[in-house]
Amino acid sequence: MKNKGTILIIVLTLSSLISKAQDEKFKALFIYNFTKYIEWPQEKRSGDFVIGVYGNNPIAKELEIIAQKKMVGSQKLIIKQVDGVSACMGCHILYIPENKSSIVETIMNSISQQGIVLITDKTGFAKSYSGINFVNINGKQQFEINKKHIENQGATVNSGLLSLGIIIE
């Protein structure tokens, strides 16, 4: 009986890890694909392309896998775990997970015109803060996009991306 219980816990834990990983995997794929539709300001088109992940989040591992296989244009893709506002400054994309949402407002107000596209994971955040925001609609992974918040960073967004996301104004 005890063994069965242990097995059950292991199975549940594993299935939980797998299901969680699947969310992060697709979010990572989305983020990588976003880079194809966004043009960063001239000064950020050389050197490494940095995707920052705020705090310790499993999406960083998924992005690392992508970084080993892909580049963004001619730029080497670097994944950086950041903590604190100053650490965000060199990023092209900054992903802030749902559990770090309280920092979003502070970051948004500290990174004006820095060429950082903010990606959040919290209902309603594209309206007030981020350029792109992941949302779960009827059990499906989608994203909201606020063109103004991306342009405020000196970046431009391709209409193709706008047509795929939920436009927030």
Binding site: K20, D23, F26, F30, N136, G139, K140, Q141
Partner: peptide
């Protein structure tokens, strides 16, 4: 990718 994500759906974690 989005169509594939739809097939997978988000997990219970979300």
């Amino acid at each position: 990718v989005m169509r594939l994500a739809d097939i997978v759906g988000v997990s219970m974690d979300e």
